[in-house]
Every structure is written in structure tokens, then in C-alpha cells.
């Protein structure tokens, strides 16, 4: 019964993982060289952990995660709350709000790249108009202080639809009877939100926060297309750092070591999630 699953898991998950762990302890290049591949032990890991750029990239994804979580999840939650109300054309609105999530990130990056143009892109024009010319055009992508914020903005816009759908499902899973009971018990709009909606969404909140965090730690496409890690490494991320090591510098062993570290980070997040799930009794 279990054999097909075990075979597939072994072939496509366990073996590649063990291989990458093994590769991480060698000096394996991307293109085979005449010199034999050497076992280097923990040397790759030591080099990564002593590389300032790695720590910068880790700090950057942490920063990205801390910013994108409230923006993306908050917006998703808010839209889900609104789109869960009875209103005309609700289905159409749900579809529209979900649209960015099924749009290719490459397309999204091209669109936002245009919006972000310096000094006279649409976004700068709006900022200038709204502020009555008091705020000077912002170099969204070229200024190290703004680049990560810009990536946060477009990432949240592109991905919130997915979280919105999960929140909608969570909201629809809360029994109408509970709201009726709360109304009879004397709870107002806020009381019902606080005593019925929020407790009913506990598992959804934990799930959404965890998947968003994991997604955020894997930030790559937006950076690769729009900033290539710049300016001044202000948008360098762990995955971008890993891809550059593997495919530009052709150090497959080194890149594998980065992937193992990323795996461990994600593993820790997943374990914290399990603890949270148990703690919140979901």
C-alpha cells in the first residue's frame, strides 16, 4: 500500500536532500572539471557563516519577512472580511482580488518596475500629486533605503490573494449559529468579531502566518528580476545568494551548503508552528 508513496518520496525528496547534504561537504563545481571532487567536510559551512554577505542576505530576508507579514496578511484578512459580507457582485470581486495571485511574478515585476520608475514613473507622480510636490521623487529601486520596501510592496500585492482565499475559507467555516447565539447573548459587532470570528480563525491565522513566513524566506524572483540584490546588497536574499554561488560562480558544493542552512531555518519555523498549533489548541 505504502510502497508507491515511499518510492516516490525516496526518489524525489529524500535522495536529493541527502545528495545536497553530501554535495554541501564537497567542492563540487557546476561544470565537471578534470580535477577530482574533494570532500571538504564543514569547510563550506564555515565559509558561509564567516561571509558578511551571507549575514546581510539573512538580515535582509528577516527584514523583508517582518515587513511583508503584517502588510500581506493584514490586507488579506481585511479583504476577506469585506468579501465575506453579503454584497452584490461578490463573486466577481473575489475573482478580481485574487487575480494578482495567479499572475506570473515576472509580469508583476515588469508592471511594478514601470510603476516604480525614477523620477517620473506613475507612483512618483501620485506621491508628488498627493503631497502637493512636497515629497521629491523617490528612487524606489535605486535607493538602498527604499529598495527592500519596494520589494515588500509589490510582493504583498502579488501574493495576498492566496492568503485572502484561505481567510475566506476560514471565515466560511465559522458557523452562522455562533453569530446568532452571540447576538442573542448581547454581543455587538465588535463583540462578535472578538468572541466569534477571531477564536474561530485561530488555526487559519497560525497557518497563514507560517506559510507566509516560509514563502518570505524563499524570496528570490522579485530580487532577481528587479534589483539583482542591489543597490549595495540592500536586497540580497539567501536564495539569491545561493543561486549566484551555484550558477554564476559555479560553486555547487557551496550553494548546496547554503540550501542546507535555508532548510534548517525553514525547519525551525515549521517546528515553532507545530508548537504554536498545540499551544493554541488547533
Amino acid at each position: 500500500m505504502l510502497a508507491p508513496a515511499v518510492i516516490l518520496m525516496t526518489l524525489f525528496l529524500i535522495t536529493p536532500f541527502i545528495l545536497s547534504f553530501w554535495t554541501a561537504m564537497t567542492n563540487q563545481p557546476l561544470v565537471p572539471r578534470p580535477t577530482p571532487v574533494r570532500f571538504v567536510g564543514m569547510a563550506n559551512f564555515v565559509r558561509i557563516l564567516t561571509d558578511d554577505l551571507f549575514w546581510t542576505s539573512l538580515w535582509n530576508v528577516t527584514r523583508f519577512t517582518v515587513w511583508v507579514l503584517p502588510v500581506q496578511c493584514g490586507f488579506a484578512f481585511l479583504t476577506a472580511l469585506i468579501l465575506n459580507q453579503k454584497m452584490p457582485l461578490r463573486g466577481l470581486f473575489r475573482g478580481m482580488f485574487f487575480l494578482p495571485a495567479i499572475t506570473s511574478m515576472v509580469v508583476v515585476c515588469v508592471i511594478w518596475g514601470t510603476l516604480f520608475q525614477y523620477p517620473s514613473g506613475p507612483l512618483n507622480q501620485i506621491v508628488g500629486f498627493v503631497s502637493g510636490g512636497r515629497i521629491q521623487p523617490i528612487d524606489w529601486m535605486g535607493n538602498p533605503d527604499w529598495a527592500m520596501f519596494s520589494i515588500v510592496l509589490l510582493s504583498a500585492w502579488q501574493a495576498y490573494g492566496f492568503q485572502m482565499i484561505i481567510y475566506l475559507a476560514g471565515l466560511q467555516g465559522i458557523s452562522e449559529e455562533l453569530y446568532d447565539a452571540a447576538r442573542i447573548d448581547g454581543a455587538g459587532l465588535w463583540g462578535r468579531f472578538w468572541h466569534v470570528t477571531m477564536p474561530g480563525l485561530r488555526p487559519t491565522h497560525v497557518f497563514v502566518l507560517v506559510i507566509t513566513t516560509i514563502q518570505a524566506f524563499k524570496l528570490y524572483t522579485q530580487v532577481a528580476i528587479l534589483t539583482q540584490g542591489g543597490p549595495k546588497s540592500s536586497t540580497e536574499t539567501v536564495v539569491h545568494y545561493m543561486v549566484r554561488a551555484g550558477f554564476e560562480e559555479q560553486k555547487l558544493g557551496y550553494a548546496s551548503a547554503v540550501s542546507v542552512i535555508l532548510f534548517l531555518i525553514v525547519l525551525v519555523i515549521a517546528l515553532v508552528q507545530r508548537r504554536l498549533m498545540r499551544r493554541f489548541d488547533v
Binding site: 458557523s175 449559529e177 455562533l178 446568532d180 447565539a181 452571540a182 468572541h195 466569534v196 477564536p199 474561530g200 485561530r202 489548541d281
Partner: peptide, 9 residues
């Protein structure tokens, strides 16, 4: 109510 409508938390 039919499904009791007890607050689960």
C-alpha cells in the same frame, strides 16, 4: 440551536 452553537474556545 440545532448545532448547540457553543463557543468552542
Amino acid at each position: 440551536f440545532q448545532n448547540y452553537a457553543l463557543y468552542p474556545h
